[in-house]
Amino acid sequence: MPTIPTTGDVHRFGLRDFAVVIVMNVLWGLNIIAVKMAVTQIAPMTAGFLRQAIVFLVCASWLRLVPGRTGTLALLGTLSGGVFYLIINLSLAVSSNIGALAIAGQLGVPFSLLLAILVFREKIHWPRMLGIGLSILGVVLLVFDPAAAREGVGLSLTALASFIWAITSLIQRRLVGVPVLTIYAWVGLMGSIVMAVVAGIAEPAAMRGIPDLPLRTIGWVAFSAIGSTVIGQGSMSWLLQRHSVSVVTPMTLAAPIISVFAAAYYFGNPLTLLMLAGGGVAMLGVAIVTIRTARVGVRVAERLEGKLA
């Protein structure tokens, strides 16, 4: 994974960087539509298998055995490429209000911080605690919105998927220095295996029907695999190699906002005042956690550099 650049390494944030930020957020924001369409036109587990198979095909040339960390890569791939997509695809398959799921999906940020506190005994101060509370409160508000409350199963599955995502974010801390494409080669490989087994058992007819899928349907899966995973994550990696974490991470906050409004427009989901309020509160909490965590990361890196100098 990319390291935090030192002061001398930081480039000026120019038009090309802003263009990459826009592309990254749009790809991530629209991905929820692509995944929903994929699990609607294909069976959800089969759609997950196809996505991970495409990711693996794109990144296969980067697959490596990394001494001392191959087991961690395999575990990350199993959870991130398999278990996470199994749950998230199922949540999208059983839900119609996709905007509500996009808001609930932001629980991954506070979950990851809470796990860091429990696992790494990371100390946090009141601003990030406030951010965690606001993130959870914003999602809880959705329960009181009739338009979103009907998605109880989908919201619960999305919250569970967010928890799995939080676990994978901690695992990735052990993979510093491993190329991003190598990580995603493992995600694609292990994810393909997990999803193939599950889909083969639960959706045998859909798996047999893969060769007969129309190109438009495969296009939704390809957009999700190549656009959101390979290009989106690759853009994030490229930005982090040029700029500090505190500069880059706040610029990812536009993606869930795009998801909410894009889903409302494309699927005709209602945007009630309570849903907008819940989304606003949740995003405020996520923004506080994201920005404060990025700043803490930079200060830690600067202290380490000072000790090594």
Rank of each mutant, 00 (worst) to 15 (best):
T182L: 12
T182M: 10
T182R: 09
I183G: 10
I183N: 13
Y184H: 15
Y184M: 14
Y184W: 12
Y184T: 08
Y184R: 07
Y184L: 13
A185Q: 09
W186Y: 14
V187E: 14
V187F: 14
V187T: 11
V187D: 09
G188I: 09
G188H: 10
G188M: 11
G188N: 06
G188C: 04
G188A: 09
G188W: 11
L189C: 09
L189G: 10
L189N: 13
L189M: 15
M190E: 05
M190D: 03
M190S: 14
G191H: 13
S192Q: 07
S192I: 09
S192M: 07
S192V: 08
I193C: 00
I193G: 02
V194M: 10
M195S: 10
M195K: 11
M195H: 11
M195P: 06
A196F: 14
A196N: 00
A196I: 01
A196W: 01
V197T: 01
V197G: 00
V197F: 06
V197Q: 00
V198F: 13
V198D: 01
A199M: 04
A199G: 03
A199Y: 04
G200L: 02
G200F: 05
G200I: 05
I201P: 01
I201A: 06
A202T: 03
A202Q: 11
E203S: 05
E203F: 07
E203P: 08
E203A: 10
P204K: 02
P204W: 01
P204H: 01
A205E: 12
A205P: 00
A205W: 01
A206Q: 07
A206H: 06
A206E: 03
M207G: 05
M207T: 03
M207K: 06
M207W: 02
R208T: 02
R208S: 07
R208K: 10
I210D: 04
I210C: 01
I210L: 08
I210G: 02
I210E: 00
I210P: 05
P211M: 04
P211E: 04
P211N: 04
D212T: 08
D212N: 07
P214D: 12
P214K: 08
L215K: 05
L215Q: 10
L215I: 14
R216Q: 15
T217W: 11
T217K: 01
I218F: 14
I218T: 14
G219H: 09
G219E: 06
G219V: 13
G219P: 12
G219T: 08
V221A: 07
